[in-house]
Design a protein around this nucleic acid. Structure first.
Lengths: 128, 128
DNA sequence: GTACGCTACATGCACACGCATCTAATGACA
DNA sequence: TGTCATTAGATGCGTGTGCATGTAGCGTAC
């Protein structure tokens, strides 16, 4: 019984997937705990804040959907939660009145800057 | 304004994290859709089946928890769902009567073998 | 043997998710 | 201008998740 080339290729493919799963789970859980405990933020909330901070503090809801890797509906509720917490505001978009501009509030910007060191620390500790 | 070494290091750390997030989301979603559509399985269900198949078709519930990267409670419910679908059985563990042996049924083994090519195909198509 | 701490798994609960669907606005075309 | 397909985002619904806790069995100490 000799493993041929395609068996080896498949094995490494599965191993790489399991490695990816394990790495993701480890970093994600560590981030979730640290951000929640120290700043009352979930990972998705932080990613949304980071996306907004990197986009002039304002972007379309649809752009956030890509940034947080969530469904459209989940993103909509995420924005609703963050608005309830005063981290962002939803503004009517003039050029396309179906659209929504999500804008970072002063409180949201502050929370992001405060949480950022925690985020980076956990990445340093758990990534790779 | 010159970026120093630690700024560069932090940037690449964050980029690597975002890459990990994106890769995970892409592969996970593709797997979820394909396995659900073609075999009525979720990713976690498949991972559990794979872990059991690689463990002589029988292992402790606690071992499954590690394999699926889920909490203990989620794993317990996962096993309950899979038992309801006839994919696994829960058996009393003689040496430690608190424990539970999860065993692959014939149907579970068949479902795993059937779904495996789909799983590998999606990995080939979406990983890297 | 009895008491006590620990471990394995199950379960109540609150909450976040995706899917399907709804509403409102847009753009194209007759 | 009126119709209609398309798109942006919100929401009802069912389900899966983690946390906290419950229950039962184990192991040690006395």
């Amino acid at each position: 019984m000799v493993a041929d080339v395609s068996d080896v290729a498949e094995l490494s493919l599965v191993e790489e997937w399991h490695l990816l799963l394990a790495r993701h789970a480890a970093v994600f859980n560590a981030l979730e705990c640290a951000l929640q405990d120290e700043h009352g933020l979930g990972v998705s909330e932080f990613e949304a804040l980071e996306a907004l901070a990197g986009c002039d503090h304002q972007c379309r809801a649809a752009d956030l959907t890509d940034a947080v890797h969530l469904s459209q509906s989940a993103t909509s509720r995420l924005v609703a939660r963050m608005e309830r917490e005063g981290l962002v505001e939803r503004a009517m978009c003039d050029v396309d009145r179906r659209g929504v501009f999500v804008t970072l509030t002063e409180a949201g910007w502050t929370r992001f800057r405060t949480a950022k060191p925690t985020h980076r620390r956990v990445l340093r500790e758990t990534l790779r």
